[in-house]
Design a binder for these strands. Sequence first.
DNA 1: GCCGTTTTCGGCCCGACTGTTTTCAGTCG
Length: 608
Amino acid sequence: MDDPESPPLSNGELARIFHEIGDMLEVKGELVFKTVAYHRAADAIAHSPVEVARAYRAGDPPRIAGVGEAIARKIEELARTGHLAFYEHLREEVPPSLVALLGIPGVGPRTVKQLHDELGVETLDDLRRAAEAGTLRGLRGMSEKTEEQVLAGIATLENRKDRMRLGQAEEIVETLLAELAETPGLRSIQPAGSFRRRRETIGDLDLLAETDRPLELVGRFVGLPTVESIIARGPHKAAVRLLRGPQVDLMVMPPDEAGTYLIHFTGSKEHNVRLRGMARDRGWSLSEKGYLRLGDDGEPATGDAADLRVFPTEAEAYGFLGLPFIEPELREDRGEIEAAVAGQLPRLVARTDLRGDCHSHSDWSDGVHAIEQMAESARRRGYAYLVLTDHTVSLAIARGLDLERVERQRRIVAALNERFAREEAAGTAPPETAPEGFRLLHGCELEVRADATLDYPDELLATYDLVVGSVHVARRQSREQLTARTLAAIRSPHVDVIAHPAGRYIGSREDLDLDWDTVYEEAARTGTALELNGSDERLDLSDVRARRAAELGCVFAIDSDAHRTEELDNLRWGTAMARRAWLGPDRIVNTRSRAELIDWTAGKPGRV
DNA sequence: GCCGTTTTCGGCCCGACTGTTTTCAGTCG
């Protein structure tokens, strides 16, 4: 029965259902291509810029690659009723506890089916008991050793850490690279995988090395003090789990053949599948080893090495398919192949394009470091400006500033800027100082109250260099209320940037329930920038949302939201998200000079 | 189940490692 009153399922919820269907079909032993089709469709829905269920309910189903007639019918049913009979029947047949067994490393769908059919295993505990009782060894292809592996796999699953934040991944990678750097024979070593693509969270880490002495490198790698266990170890490849840390894969490549290796191990899997398809169309088989010419039978030729093509760089390896180099952040099969074929890849914004930072805090509100420390730190990073945006009065928990403290803070900012100007004139500023000089701009992080009013009066807001507006409180309001509050900030002539528009914390706090397209359209119409918040706990807007916003004409600010000096470097993660959203420097307001930025903020009433 | 400037049927990406195997299936990335 239709239930138009209930909120439509989110893309994430739809994707989870179709992934689960794919998993259940795998366990049932269904044709593998069918299960893959469900997973592909689930991924496409998860990354869709439009709210799929809402669009179906409105009678305007979007065209989604990988969603054909059968899956479209299922989305339709889910969108209209919130239920899917096919899914519910499947869950009775293949209980979720059985699907959960797929999470055990080393246990795949065939094994789960075998365990269920032959031993009646339905849950993790069933399997644990069976392995401990030694009843697995009687099954075809299983032994005592299998039982040990299953038990170890269950332990791993139960201890499995959540995916890492980018900053955590970076720290581990840098430690590993330092520990392996002095290995004899090593020519180069670098991270690949989702960390190189800068996905918002990282599961496993991948390292790629060129070395003349593979055995020595692999040996040192598996012997590192932080290695808890060795998962696999071959002559050119090894996988380990770190103590209280992630799995790390090391791959050794022959010197001067890195091109296809880097592509293969950087991924994404979906990007690689597309490349292999292109290679196949041209009569070549692509693997990490290079391009191998296909014979008349459609199989790669064996024997003579004459038909293997290898390349020292990724650019050359892409070039073999007639493609330009594709930036790692774009390699998600979200249109980058088509753009590359058409010669229309975007020029992505780079960290060095940024001239300043529009969102930062001091110990006047909830930051750690003093105003002067924050300013000095930004100056020594070569910025032309840092906007100090401490919280406003109603956010008492963060010591929001009342009017009297705003005035005192303003005098401190002015005094600092006088000193900076004097030093620049006298030539005594730090050598890292930007050519245009450095100034601390005065702003605030303006609270949008629960009733959609702004925390400071217009007369006060008009005195700031730049204002970022934020929704922090009353997050559980209705979609209409939350959207109205965000729009109130966007429509204010004094609000220049909407800070962390979705208000999420990765892994712990969901996005605000907003009418997103309306928010994007209004931001575009008024010229209000949306923030790409660089805190690796936020990364807000997400890459998917930012790309949609850009399609609708929005501009953005890449901000650190630093609460201490070290966090100023959060700009690198904000930049990564901008790149994953296909954004160029022209869309980012803080690629502008200080004078241009100030002109832009002063022009807002005229932009409306 | 999806998809089509070679197909509306017949394909659908590739290889290393593991374990139990005597030639290969399963899992993983």
